[in-house]
């Protein structure tokens, strides 16, 4: 399935700017360093970059090192993955 998301915030600068529209796909297997959209139980729909992948979960990071996100210190179960960002419109 393809989905569209509007980016809000600056934690993914310089890759993504606030206001960018991205397209995600859940058909494509994710790899380390892919930008993904995920559902976080606390923070909702979040866009981050994959920093590591294990069998049942993955971790993410921000591109903008000036920011500090609690989402980046959590393990995210694979079922929380919405999709890989395949295009920035």
């Amino acid at each position: 399935m393809f989905q569209y998301f509007k980016i809000k915030g600056e934690s993914m600068l310089p890759s993504l700017q606030s206001g960018d529209i991205v397209v995600t796909s859940d058909f494509i297997k994710i790899n380390k360093n892919d930008i993904v959209v995920l559902k976080d139980d606390t923070y909702g729909t979040v866009v981050k970059r994959v920093s590591s992948i294990k069998k049942n979960y993955f971790r993410v990071r921000s591109d903008n090192l000036k920011t500090d996100s609690p989402v980046c210190s959590k393990l995210h179960p694979n079922e929380n993955l919405v999709g890989k960002v395949i295009s920035i419109l």
Binding site: Y4, K6, G9, T45, S62
Partner: peptide, 16 residues
């Protein structure tokens, strides 16, 4: 078409 927002921010307080 309504496009959902994906958050790329870190909005919890007390990060000093």
């Amino acid at each position: 078409m309504k496009i959902e927002e994906a958050l790329a921010h870190c909005d919890i307080p007390c990060k000093i």
